Simulated scan of single mutants.
Amino acid sequence: MKSKNIVVIGGNSGIGKAITSGLETLGAKVFSYSKSQEGESQLDVTKDFDEIKNLPEVIDGLVYCPGTINLKPFHRFRIADFQNDYNVNVLGAVRVLQACMKGLKKSNSASVVLFSTVAVGVGLGFHSSISSAKGAVEGLAKSLAAEWAANKIRVNVIAPSLTDTPLANQLLSSDDKKEASNKRHPLGRYGKPEDIASAALYLLSDDASWMTGQVLHLDGGMSAIK
């Protein structure tokens, strides 16, 4: 990972922050962007853009972390809710991927990491909007993995379950909620940002040089066992 140029979108908090920290520890050159950062590192993925400022000429890795958690009964969702989730999770990724494509193609072995959710593979009530959007992310990743394989660009997805990030604050806002979340996972606990970051670091590394088009289910066993 040393001296590789890695672009992290949403690297200012939660999973993105843990990934950025891990990359820097391994000696990578990290280019972090998010809506909450200032100056030329500020990036609103919901707005249209053709380029991202100060990208390196060669991009060895790209991680797209922005996401949403919008949970409620289906009849309470408005079309605008679905559109917002799709805009952040899918179209935001598309905008970033298109802006970074030229740099990725200049690398000898580039890696793209996108994020889905356990709710795509496991039917979970109240998740209709986010699971629809993240399902589209998985489809996008597999298509790009096929299309970009000739350019030696790997595209993989991490599909976590509930992870302790600022985005999940309301779901883990009390000891009772935390305990209930622990019990839903076969391994007896919800995720930590470092759990997800470790998987992302692997996918970005040369150790994963023969892996593409995959969805890595990192969910405490929720999607596989009872």
Rank of each mutant, 00 (worst) to 15 (best):
D60K: 07
G92H: 00
Y64C: 04
D50G: 13
V45S: 01
I196L: 07
D164W: 01
A199P: 03
K178I: 09
I130H: 04
L204A: 01
E24V: 09
V30D: 04
R184I: 13
N151K: 13
M1H: 13
V7Q: 03
K29Q: 13
Q83I: 10
V30K: 02
T165S: 05
K178M: 05
S13Q: 13
W210G: 01
V94W: 01
V63L: 03
P160R: 00
G22H: 04
V113P: 00
N87C: 08
A99S: 06
R76Q: 13
G188Q: 13
D175K: 15
G22L: 08
R78S: 11
N169Q: 14
V118T: 15
V63T: 02
V8A: 09
D219G: 02
L23K: 06
L26Y: 08
V137K: 09
P73E: 15
A200K: 00
F77Y: 12
V8R: 04
I158P: 01
A18M: 04
I153A: 03
L104N: 00
I196Y: 00
Q170E: 14
L187K: 12
D175E: 15
G220P: 02
G14A: 12
N70A: 07
A93I: 00
R189E: 12
G10A: 06
I19M: 04
A119P: 05
D164Y: 00
I79Q: 12
D50H: 05
V8E: 02
Y202A: 02
L55C: 02
S109W: 08
G10E: 02
